[in-house]
Design a binder for these strands. Structure first.
Length: 358
DNA sequence: AAAACGTGGTG
DNA sequence: TCACCAAGTTT
């Protein structure tokens, strides 16, 4: 069904419809230089596209850059990454967040080696079958690394498309409609450049707050701009407030400076990451924190709690400390780690905050 | 299909 | 201070 036949979808005059050539011309002049980007006119290695795209999921360019460089230096190929122990990958990922990405990154590298001879598949369908690769990442690799005609619709694409067509329907319900509209924009060539041009446009011109419409190659075609309030789009449903949880973290410090540490369960929140032992984190905290201490000791509460905000709750962690004799043995499932060994541990940010109380 | 899943920067 | 945001995927 042509969009024009549906009165719910407003379409700009045909003469002003966004032309992919205009965006590509803008991209040729304003493309951002990013560590994972190939030189103009060249394709990027699939592994590098893969690595960067996984890291960039819900994560800013500035945050990702140093991690990308470190991973690439340490594991220059899928095969190298596949050979690495998961613990090392988690440790290198520590601080980046969404740790399932690191577990899936590793699993995906192994799957590419085991199932595809160490070569990333070159179709969206086959890529989609790999762990950690969803519709966005499959389209990103297919277009950027293999020049397939594909639409990696991320938040930038959604914002740009929602404004171009003034889509009133709120996200996330509007996702299917935005994707359908996005597909109408695709060029017949330069698919990788087009995908990245959309992201650059969203990141530098068609920004969430104050879009720079005067600099936009598509300004004439944009319905939201014509309406006078482009920042109104995309419409989103309000998010629920974050509940609070509390807990107590136990900082057991041995005479030689070693700290008692354990690993979290392999899945779920901070899955597989290292942590200082603590009570469960619950609304209102647990009734008897001492009952959760990893060993019997003269625990004393430190005055400054650690505050940390996760994706779906805010945590306030009290910190209790005990100093123990040099010969104290670690309880089952725990280990002593000296400060020199902290960097090799997979401590997430919240645990680095706890350790900072030492 | 809605909820789980991190973190740091910004206005 | 705090809500919102950033190249989403999994269950």
């Amino acid at each position: 069904m042509p969009a024009a036949a549906n009165p719910a979808i407003r379409v700009p005059p045909a003469a002003a419809r966004p032309a992919p050539e205009a965006l590509l011309a803008w991209y040729d002049r304003h493309r951002r230089r990013l560590p994972w980007r190939a030189a103009p006119g060249r394709r990027q290695e699939p592994y590098r596209v893969f690595l960067s795209e996984i890291m960039l999921q819900q994560t800013t360019v500035v945050t990702v850059a140093p991690y990308y460089e470190a991973f690439l230096a340490r594991w220059p190929s899928v095969a190298a990454l596949a050979d690495a122990p998961l613990e090392e990958v988690l440790s290198a990922w520590a601080g980046l967040g969404y740790y399932a990405r690191a577990r899936n990154l590793h699993a995906c590298a192994r799957a590419v080696v085991a199932r595809h001879g160490g070569v990333f598949p070159d179709t969206e369908e086959a890529l989609l079958d790999l762990p950690g690769i969803g519709p966005y990442t499959a389209a990103a690799i297919a277009s950027i690394a293999y020049e397939r005609r594909a639409a990696p619709v991320d938040g930038n694409w959604e914002r740009v498309v929602a404004r171009l067509f003034a889509v009133d329907e709120p996200l996330p319900r509007a996702k299917a409609k935005l994707r359908a509209l996005a597909l109408t924009l695709l060029p017949d060539a330069r698919h990788g450049d087009f995908a990245q041009a959309m992201m650059d446009l969203g990141a530098t011109i068609c920004t969430p707050r104050k879009p720079a419409c005067a600099l936009c190659p598509w300004t004439e075609a944009c319905v939201a701009r014509a309406e006078g309030a482009p920042e109104r789009y995309p419409v989103k449903v309000a998010k629920a407030a974050k509940p609070a949880r509390r807990g107590v973290a136990f900082l057991a410090v041995r005479a030689d400076g070693a700290v008692l540490v354990r690993s979290r369960p392999p899945k779920g929140l901070l899955g597989g990451m290292s942590e200082v032992p603590s009570t469960p984190w619950e609304p209102g905290g647990v009734a008897n924190p001492a009952g959760h201490a990893p060993l019997k000791a003269p625990w004393r509460a430190l005055n400054a709690p650690v505050a940390h905000v996760f994706s779906h709750f805010a945590l306030e962690l009290d910190v209790w400390r005990a100093d123990l004799a040099a010969g104290t043995t670690a309880p089952a499932g725990h280990r002593w780690v000296r400060p020199e060994g902290f960097d090799a541990e997979a401590f997430p940010s919240v645990m680095r905050k706890v350790l900072a109380k030492l």
